[in-house]
Design a binder for these strands. Structure first.
Lengths: 223, 223
DNA sequence: TTGGGTTCGTTAGAAGTTATAACCCAAGTT
DNA sequence: AACTTGGGTTATAACTTCTAACGAACCCAA
């Protein structure tokens, strides 16, 4: 969005840079299509190159390796999620809206969700900037949790969090809110990931209702 | 276990069959090693064959394709989990023991856990017998949930489950127990999967304590 | 004992994949 | 105008799954 400034000032980038950025974007576009339909493991650089009309190794001018492309996609997914959640709580830090936005975002492209929260590849460690976005997500979640009245009975685990709240940065949320944020995260992820993975199909009940039930329990201020 | 009967009666299988079964087991053994260290996507039939001293395509005498091998591994994982959970509740249907057994089993080999509950590959549908084992797991879970006193306030979602309890088969558990079983499943999976995927690393708190806290909340009979 | 059929293993090869190397050529810079 | 940089190409290496064709060992039966 920042790049779409209505400034009369022409884009400072050279034509080369603009072209390069556009090709990179097109590559990622095709990559997302492949991932959405066949999963991340089936992503083929060769196939993407052919789709773009260029042959094979040309693509390596834009991404050093398959891993680097996937890392970029993960980064993009994180950014998209952070943006979506942040936008959902502009009106006010509302946990219910946050949950709704999360579910909508996840179902929009399940494989994109799994790119972040799915099966990890044993060796992989996300680069620094990605963990930065992750903590931004955590921050908006903490904001919403602080807004909720702390009428939960003091749980032992909340006491533990009191001593281990480094991950919350300098966020002023009380330990109970931290606890609530973790529960919000893990419970909704629990329902969502199993639903998206298809473990509820032909069980008969409505996953949306179950999701709502879990959310209600979260909002009731029990934890 | 059934095959290890102390019968004097010799194994009815021909030597051929015994050899074949042993080679298949050895292949799966190596496959598990690869999966544990590099994830399922890195599983290489060629590498396994070399490790067993035979060259490449020989392996196709034992498994028709890479997919078939992985399917067999998924089957084995399901069986192992079902067995573990069943064994944990022989003394009595205890939700806490069940949760403990689940966590132990998952941490024993995280990639095995993700083979069942991780990122799904878009096209894949598990064969009939595997869904059978899955419902056996659900049955032991339902047993444990029925044993727990139903002091939960009637939730709207429980009413929905009343009308959609096909997945419970002929299990006599009340709808509230069904609800509890689902919550048990999704909440523990939520904590467990995020922990195993490394999303809690360097957050500072102890995942085991959080798992215990979620379990406590489940046991308190709120849902 | 002498076949005949089944099964296991081999090598060869097709069709993919990621990735590197060497080279050409056009665009931008000095 | 010469030079450097960057995008594209083809060729190639080293992988992968998987099929085909062939040889040899084994089992069984006449």
């Amino acid at each position: 969005m920042a790049k779409a400034d209505a400034d009369v000032e022409t884009d400072t980038r050279t034509p080369r840079e603009r072209y390069r950025a556009q090709v990179r974007a097109e590559i990622k576009e095709r990559a997302w299509e492949q991932i959405a339909t066949a999963g991340a493991s089936a992503l083929s650089l060769n196939a993407i190159a052919k789709q773009l009309g260029m042959s094979g190794p040309a693509l390596y001018r834009y991404f050093a390796s398959r891993d680097e492309l996937i890392t970029e996609l993960i980064r993009e997914a994180y950014r998209s999620l952070a943006e979506t959640l942040r936008a959902s709580s502009t009106t006010g830090a509302d946990l219910a809206e946050l949950a709704h936005a999360l579910r909508g975002w996840a179902m929009e492209d399940p494989q994109r969700y799994f790119l972040i929260y799915g099966t990890p590849v044993p060796g992989y460690h996300a680069p620094e900037d990605i963990t930065g976005i992750a903590s931004e997500i955590m921050r908006t979640l903490l904001d919403a949790c602080t807004a909720l009245a702390p009428d939960a009975p003091a749980a032992p685990f909340s006491a533990h969090l009191e001593d281990h709240r480094d991950w919350a940065g300098d966020h002023p949320a009380p330990a109970a809110a931290l606890h609530r944020a973790l529960a919000f995260w893990t419970r909704l992820h629990g329902v969502l990931s199993l639903e998206l993975a298809g473990h509820f199909t032909d069980m008969g009940f409505d996953p949306a209702l179950f999701f709502a039930a879990e959310l209600d329990d979260l909002l009731s201020g029990r934890v």
